[in-house]
Design a protein around this nucleic acid. Structure first.
Lengths: 147, 147
DNA sequence: CATTGTGTAACTGTTATAATTACAGCAGAG
DNA sequence: CTCTGCTGTAATTATAACAGTTACACAATG
C-alpha cells in the first residue's frame, strides 16, 4: 500500500472537521507532505464527487460529502487503491508442469480475494467515525468482522 | 506484499506434490526465481517445522507437514508476512492539532486490522486445497467469508 | 575426505515511491 | 479586463525497497 490512501483519509477528516475551504498548501502542512501529492489525490476525490474546488484567491478544496455515510471503502474506490497484491509472479505459464504454470494465477486470485475482503471491511468505517474517535478519544473504530 | 509469500506457497505445493527431496536449485527452477531466495524462505519454513532438510549429495528440502491441515495462515506466520501496511505515516505526532498528531496512529491501526483480517481469511485455504485445485481443475479455493 | 547442498552476508541492478520543479489553465476580486 | 492565487498535470530527481547474483563457511552424506 502506498501513501495515497493515508493522504486521502487524513485530508478528508481534516477538511470535514474544518468545514471550510483549504488549499493544497494548507492540507499538505497538516498531512505533512507536499502540495503536489495532495492535489494528485484530491483531484481523484473531486472526480468521485467527494470534494469540490474553489478557484482564485483563497480557493482550495471543500468537503461536499456526508461524513456520516462516507465510508473508507468509497474513498479507496475513488483513488483506485489496491491493498494486497504482488507484482511478482511465481512459475512460468509456458511450462508443461501444471504447478509451475498454474501457481501464478492461483496466487493472484488469492490476492484479489484478500483485497476485496479489505475493501468490504472498510465499509464499516466512516469519516465521521474517525472524527469522533480522534477528538473524543473514543475506542478504535472497529471493523465489522462479518463484513 | 513482496514475493516471499508466493514463493513459500508455491514451493510447498510443489514439495508436497512431489513427495521427495528437492534442492533449492530444483525448486528455483519450478518457481522461476533464484536458489538463494528459495533458501531464504525455506529456512524460515524449516524453523516453523513445516519442512526439513537433508544434507549431502542429493540433499535438499522435504515436506514434513500435513497438507490437509497446513493453512496459508500458518505459512504466512512462519515467514512473518505483512499483507497490508504503509511505511509512510501521515501527520506529525508533535503537532498540537489533534488530527495531524493523531491520524498517523489511526491509519496504522486500520492497516493492522486489515492485515489481521487477511491472516484470518487464509485459515480457510490449505496446501491440499491448492493441490486439488491445480490438478483437478476444481473451482477456486474460496476464502471463508465469515472467517 | 571429497562432494553436494544449506544458511547467510554482501553487493548489484532495477523498480517503486515520495519529493520537487515547472507551467498551462481557470476562477474570482478589484 | 487584468492581476493574483490556486488547481491539475507533466517531467525530473532522490531515495528506499526488492529481486537477483556472487561468495563462502558449515554440515551431512557416501
Amino acid at each position: 500500500m502506498n501513501s495515497s490512501f493515508c493522504i486521502a483519509v487524513h485530508a478528508l477528516v481534516y477538511l470535514n472537521h474544518m468545514q471550510k475551504v483549504l488549499s493544497s498548501e494548507e492540507l499538505a502542512q497538516n498531512v505533512c507532505t507536499n502540495p503536489v501529492l495532495i492535489r494528485k489525490v484530491m483531484s481523484r476525490l473531486k472526480k468521485a464527487g467527494i470534494v469540490d474546488t474553489k478557484g482564485g484567491n483563497n480557493g482550495g478544496y471543500i468537503f461536499t460529502a456526508d461524513a456520516e455515510t462516507l465510508t473508507l471503502e468509497r474513498i479507496a474506490e475513488a483513488i483506485d487503491m489496491q491493498f494486497v497484491g504482488s507484482p511478482w509472479r511465481s512459475g512460468d505459464i509456458d511450462k508443461e508442469c501444471l504447478i509451475s504454470s498454474g501457481m501464478g494465477e492461483i496466487m493472484q486470485n488469492i490476492c484479489a480475494q484478500l483485497d476485496e475482503h479489505c475493501r468490504k471491511s472498510l465499509r464499516g468505517i466512516t469519516v465521521a467515525d474517525i472524527d469522533r474517535k480522534i477528538l473524543k478519544h473514543e475506542k478504535e473504530p472497529k471493523i465489522d468482522e462479518k463484513a
